[in-house]
Amino acid sequence: MTEGNTPVVEGEDALTRLEQEGEIAADYLEGLLDIADLDGDIDMDVEGDRAAVSIVGDSGRDLQKLVGRDGEVLEALQELTRLAVHRETGDRSRLMLDIGGFRARKRAELTELGTKAAQDAKTSGEPVKLRPMTPFERKVVHDAVAAAGLRSESEGEEPQRRVVVLPA
């Protein structure tokens, strides 16, 4: 658990609540893996103010099936898992699901992209426009740009909304 890096969680109660969310989610997903005869273990964690649940394992093909093209199946499973948690707790869940490291890899790629765009903006003195992205992707890029010491904003309407990195 990443203590000291979880400022948003207020006290024991919130932490216990998020851990409970993780357990409900794990039961729901484990049941699915059993029925579908897919290999995978479930990891639970709390990241910031969210429960984080990952399906991990060495059978890449099985897990890839549950990620789908562009994470489409992963998003669907996350949606259903949040509903399963909501049914048990009565509270809306913001739980994050990852499968086979898909989100972790995506986050690393986007962080690199954001860092590089910040360098380009610094060098050229011109704003750098990136391709349209989902809200999750834009958040990762904004964070990377901020870490590089520049500002960025989003422009356009979904699903064409994109990050623009501003030169200093």
């Binding site: 579908a36 099936k65 549950l66 789908g68 489409e72 199946v73 998003e75 669907a76 499973l77 949606e79 259903l80 509903l83």
Partner: peptide, 21 residues
């Protein structure tokens, strides 16, 4: 209503997972 979801979101998620399996 619950299994259909807002704008059919939940029904779509169920179909996506069934398709993947």
């Amino acid at each position: 209503g619950k299994v259909i979801g807002r704008n059919g979101r939940t029904a779509r998620a169920l179909r996506t997972v069934v398709g993947a399996l």
